[in-house]
């Protein structure tokens, strides 16, 4: 089976029968966009909520506010229809239980919020999500079935 891997701060587009995966999501959020009719899917491994707060925002895949429109664009170019796009999201954990008030420690929560806001902005429904918590996730999206499989260490596997 053809499995395409997406690294940290990266995004890729695949089509049936390919599988797309990203490994070890922590505070980052994995965003899947899917056109069920074309069986075309995009996956972004988003690291930060907002490109405007960063000195270097050339990598569009890294930020929620740039990755989502960029991924929509790439998918439309490959024949997806905007009104058919749905989304599944996973990740955004708080890996370390810091006592401090540092913003960066709440990065998971901020990433989830930014991803949801940006999907909403482009009128894309989130049909399933597995976010938050304090553990890592590996996710795998099947372009044929539209199922997102989530694996966590010691917590087994679930499908959304």
């Amino acid at each position: 089976m053809d499995v395409v891997k997406v690294g940290m701060a990266d995004l890729k587009i695949v089509k049936n029968p390919q599988i797309i995966t990203t490994l070890g999501l922590g505070s980052c959020v994995g965003v899947v966009l899917y056109d069920p009719e074309k069986k075309l899917a995009g996956l972004a491994h988003i690291m930060l909520p907002d490109s405007n707060n960063s000195k270097d925002n050339t990598n569009k895949a890294k930020f929620a506010d740039t990755a989502i429109p960029y991924m929509i664009d790439l998918m439309l170019k490959k024949g997806a229809k905007k009104e058919r796009l749905i989304s599944k999201i996973a990740g955004g954990a708080q890996m370390f239980d810091f006592k401090g008030k540092s913003d960066i420690m709440k990065i998971g929560v901020r990433n989830i919020k930014a991803v949801k806001e940006n999907l909403h902005k482009f009128n894309i429904n989130i049909v399933a999500e597995d976010v938050g918590g304090n553990y890592g996730r590996t996710i795998e999206f099947n372009t044929n079935t539209g199922k997102l499989t989530i694996r966590s260490l010691g917590k087994g596997t679930k499908e959304i």
Binding site: M8, A9, L23, G24, L25, G26, S27, C28, M47, L48, N53, S54, K55, D56, N59, K62, A93, M95, F96, I104, M105, I107, Y135, G136, R137, T138, L153
Partner: peptide, 19 residues
Amino acid sequence: DMAGAILSVPLTYYGHVGD
């Protein structure tokens, strides 16, 4: 936990300035 999930936290600081 998974190494990727753990390392994503300190690497976030670098995400602001590059890849």
